Each structure stands twice: as structure tokens, then as C-alpha cells.
Lab assay of single mutants.
Amino acid sequence: MQRVNMIMAESPGLITICLLGYLLSAECTVFLDHENANKILNRPKRYNSGKLEEFVQGNLERECMEEKCSFEEAREVFENTERTTEFWKQYVDGDQCESNPCLNGGSCKDDINSYECWCPFGFEGKNCELDVTCNIKNGRCEQFCKNSADNKVVCSCTEGYRLAENQKSCEPAVPFPCGRVSVSQTSKLTRAETVFPDVDYVNSTEAETILDNITQSTQSFNDFTRVVGGEDAKPGQFPWQVVLNGKVDAFCGGSIVNEKWIVTAAHCVETGVKITVVAGEHNIEETEHTEQKRNVIRIIPHHNYNAAINKYNHDIALLELDEPLVLNSYVTPICIADKEYTNIFLKFGSGYVSGWGRVFHKGRSALVLQYLRVPLVDRATCLRSTKFTIYNNMFCAGFHEGGRDSCQGDSGGPHVTEVEGTSFLTGIISWGEECAMKGKYGIYTKVSRYVNWIKEKTKLT
């Protein structure tokens, strides 16, 4: 034993070699072989497995989906700052455009905790909710729209109204504003409101030439003092309507412009014939205590009207009353817009006519005020429907199939267009061939041609 100890002390290297040989010859039971080890760690190889990531292109799944990435790591994937920024906006807080917040056709661009709407022409605001041009839906104005110097929408209202708090709607500024039905039992019968379409306001006024200088022999019209197929109006439903009495009662109609003036057809009036105007009328054979009678003290036909040349060209006249009318729910003026808007309103496509005229061709006159909704007829169809001249200051309205029309005794009465609950004068009943005849239409004086003249002559002093 002493000898062994001496050998170990003198030859430590020998001992180490012996131990190493023993270990190498022993069977290893701690580690699995290569094949079995792979069965336990069965993990798919990654895209760049075996390579240094710093030297390969980034992978979106590896960089940002398996674990949260930084902007720089995302930049490695896209290799483009702009594309990385677009991805980053949604990656950080989701897609803010998912709810489609942009209105009126706006395009949404996502941002971090926010979004941006790219608005089409005519709109602005956070969600493109603000109209900035009158060309689109009248700028959301209830009545009139004008573009300011910086191309912003400025709404306005006709006389007797003021802008509401929203700067879009119009509200009454006087007790009985024009064009409004205020009798409670008839307010439910107000005709369907007309909503502004998209309009090209630059070209809204037709490029028409008034044929002022045409000389033409007097034409022989049949029954051209021209509501057939209409309905009984309720008291106060058309408070701007008046009836004219002269040699015979209810020979023509008219509309209240203001307390002192009536507008009617020029062919209705004769110099030297006494005319009485009755406002607030409903049943011409009954006294309903809503009527107001006034005498006409002055007749002003349009300066281009000449019955000797043509009885229905420039067929418009103004009547001055001896005493002002007292405005109330049964006696209310009709609204008159400017030339541009009167023309736009007419193009809405349908209007209402009213009167006490004959209820059928050569038949009896109506006792109760009649009204009828009539569609506008395109000019080409209008011209083809008659052998008589249709001037540019006239328009056609009615039904091709016949059966409904204005008729004798309705002449001078109103053709009105309702705009968001307020009625505007767009025409004056003038003439036609018979009444409600198939293929024939009622012919009306186009008020847009005469609004400046009306307003100039009827100013209240």
C-alpha cells in the first residue's frame, strides 16, 4: 500500500490518463441519441435557420407576430419608411378606419389613436360632414345658397324668414311668412316636400332668348283662358290664391305678392273693366268669414305684352289694390325667389296649380277651390304637342294621358313649387288646347323671366 501511494504521488498524470480511459469505455446513459432527441424537440425550422439574422431580410411573422416588435424591426421587413409607417399605425392600436367614419364618399386613412378623412370636392370637416359648395344638395341650405369668396357655403332665406341657429334652416321672422300653410287642420295635408338634388348652379339658368321682337298675326285659340281631375282644397291650404270678379264672377285667378299687390295673367284683364279681388276665398257660393274683398285701382301688364300681336306672350300683369290686405292664416303671400332659384325650383319637376275653373272641358265651374299636382314636361315634348308657338318664356306641365289639367277660369292662378315646406311661385296658368285632352298640356308663363320686374313694381313704400 505504501508503494502504491508513492507511485500516485510521483505520477499524477498517469492516474488522470487511467481515469479518462475508464470513462470513455463506459456506456453513456444520461444523453439520448440524435434521433430520439429530435422526437422530443420537434420544432419547425425557421426561415433563416442556421444563418445569422443580421444578414437576412426581415420576416413579418418572425419579427412582429411571434413577439412584439419595434418600429426598427418592422422597418427591416418593409425596407421602406412609408410602408412601415402605414403598417405601424394599425399594428400599434388597430384600424381606426374600420367603422368607416368618413361621410359623403370620403376616404379614410388610419393613424395612431386617430384617423384622417380625405374629402371629395365640396366637403370638409373631420368626417367630411361639412358642405362647402352650393353645387351639392344646395349646400344643405333649406332655401338659398351662395358661395363666399373663400368658396364656403353661405345660406340665406327669402323675405319674412331668418336663418336658424344651425345656419342652414329657415324659420319665420314674421307672423305670416310667405308660402307657408298655417291653418292647423290643413298642415297635415301639406304636399310632399321637395329635397334639393345635386345641381350645376353655374349652368342652372337656361341660355334662352326671349323672342321679344317676333311679330306674329293673332292666333285663334280655343278655350285658351284655361282644375280638371283635381281635388277639393281645404280652407287655408292655398292662402296665396285669390279669385278675380268682373263682368262675371271667378273669371280668373291670381296670387298675393304682398298686402297691396296681386300677380295674374295679362290676358285676364281689360282696361276700363272694374275688377274686384277676393282673398281668403274657399267656396265661392258661401260666406265663410275668411274672405277679404278689395278693388283694383291700377293694372300693370308687362311692358312687352301686346294682345294685338299675341294674347299669351309675356302673359303676366300686376294688380294694385285700393287697401292693403290683412295677412292671416287664410290670406298669405306666395314666396318669389330670384331668377336663378325660381328656375331651379321649376326644374324640380312638379308643381301645384289651383283655381275655381271648370271641372271638365266646357263644363261647370268649381264651387270649392280645386288643386292638382302636375309634372313638368320637357321642352321637346311640349313643342311636338301643339302647332302653336311655345315661346321661351312659357313652359308645359300636365299629363300625356289627359284627364287632369287646369281649365277655363283658372287662368292667372299660381303654379307653385314647394321647397322644404315653403311654396314659391314658378308659373302662372296661361293657356292650353281644350282641357285635359290626351297628348295636350297646360301652358304656363315662366315666372323666372319676370321676377325682377315683379319685385321692382310691387315694392311697398
Rank of each mutant, 00 (worst) to 15 (best):
N5F: 13
S11I: 15
C18P: 02
L24Q: 03
S25Q: 07
S25Y: 14
E27R: 05
C28H: 02
E35D: 15
E35M: 11
A37H: 06
K39D: 15
R46K: 11
Y47C: 04
E53K: 07
E53W: 06
Q57C: 04
G58N: 12
N59T: 14
L60R: 06
M65P: 11
E66S: 07
S70H: 08
E72R: 12
E72K: 12
E76Q: 10
T84G: 11
E86Y: 06
E86V: 15
Q90F: 11
V92D: 09
D93L: 11
G94D: 09
Q96S: 15
C97N: 02
S114Y: 09
Y115L: 03
C119H: 01
P120N: 14
F121T: 15
F123L: 07
E124A: 14
C134E: 02
N135S: 12
N135D: 12
K137E: 10
C141D: 00
Q143T: 02
F144G: 00
F144I: 04
F144R: 00
V153Y: 15
V153N: 11
V153Q: 15
T158V: 11
G160F: 02
L163N: 03
E165I: 08
E165H: 12
P175K: 12
P175V: 07
P175Y: 05
P175H: 08
F176E: 03
G179F: 00
R180E: 02
V181Y: 07
V181W: 07
V181S: 11
S184G: 08
T186K: 08
T190W: 11
R191A: 13
P197L: 11
V202Y: 09
A207N: 11
I210C: 10
L211T: 09
D212L: 07
T218Q: 10
F224S: 14
V227N: 13
G230A: 13
E231S: 05
D232K: 12
Q237A: 07
P239Q: 01
W240M: 00
V243M: 06
L244G: 01
L244M: 06
G246R: 00
V248I: 11
A250F: 08
G253R: 09
G254I: 00
G254T: 00
N258W: 01
N258L: 01
K260A: 03
T264C: 06
C268P: 00
E270L: 05
T271H: 03
T271S: 09
T276Q: 07
V277F: 00
G280T: 01
N283T: 10
R294H: 01
N295H: 05
I297C: 02
H302S: 03
Y305D: 01
K311P: 10
H314R: 02
D315T: 02
L318Q: 01
E323Q: 11
L327C: 03
P333S: 05
P333W: 00
T342D: 03
N343L: 04
N343C: 03
R358N: 08
L367S: 07
Y371T: 13
Y371C: 07
L372Y: 13
R373K: 08
Y391N: 08
H400F: 06
H400E: 15
H400I: 14
E401T: 13
G403E: 15
R404K: 01
C407D: 03
C407H: 05
P414A: 09
G421W: 03
G421S: 05
S423F: 15
I429R: 14
S430Y: 03
C435W: 03
K438L: 15
G439I: 02
K440S: 08
G442P: 04
Y444D: 01
K446L: 03
K446F: 01
Y450H: 03
E456C: 05
L460Y: 14
L460N: 08
T461N: 15
T461S: 15
